[in-house]
């Protein structure tokens, strides 16, 4: 009891451990698991990442004006939903060209708000996939 009594007294003169969060940003480690990033020029459209993704946050959907790439025979476009992603990096491990076509950054995904239409747009894409 006495130790914590004096500890509390000593703590009065120490700087607090907590930080003013939005004003003082939290330092992110280099290996922090953040959003998945993609380079469509390097992609070979093997669709391995789509199969590996546990929550189904990566979709290759046929579109009218697909990105120009000679490997892209079916006219697919990469779609990624950071709000569905669990950042497990299964897709990066499945990718035949990791770090070039698909890699994991250490950036935090932004918070989804109503204007993003997270659900509606994504459900449409899922419909297209079927």
């Amino acid at each position: 009891m006495l130790t914590s009594f004096f500890k509390a007294l000593a703590n009065l003169f120490k700087t607090p451990k907590t930080i003013d969060y939005p004003l003082t940003p939290i330092a992110k480690d280099e290996k922090y698991r953040g959003v998945i990033e993609y380079n469509q020029d390097e992609c070979i459209y093997c669709l391995k990442c789509e199969k590996a993704c546990p929550p189904g946050a990566i979709l290759f959907v046929p579109v009218d004006n697909p990105p120009i790439n000679e490997k892209n025979k079916k006219g697919l476009k990469y779609h990624y939903n950071p709000h569905l992603c669990i950042y497990c990096s299964e897709c990066v491990r499945a990718c035949p060209k990791p770090q070039e076509a698909l890699w994991q950054s250490n950036k935090k995904g932004h918070i989804g708000i109503k204007d993003d239409k997270i659900n509606d747009d994504w459900f449409e894409l899922e419909e297209l996939k079927k």
Partner: peptide, 11 residues
């Protein structure tokens, strides 16, 4: 505030 400082919080 004092109590927070004693617990090393911002308060």
């Amino acid at each position: 505030v004092v109590r927070a400082r004693m617990q090393r919080r911002q308060g």
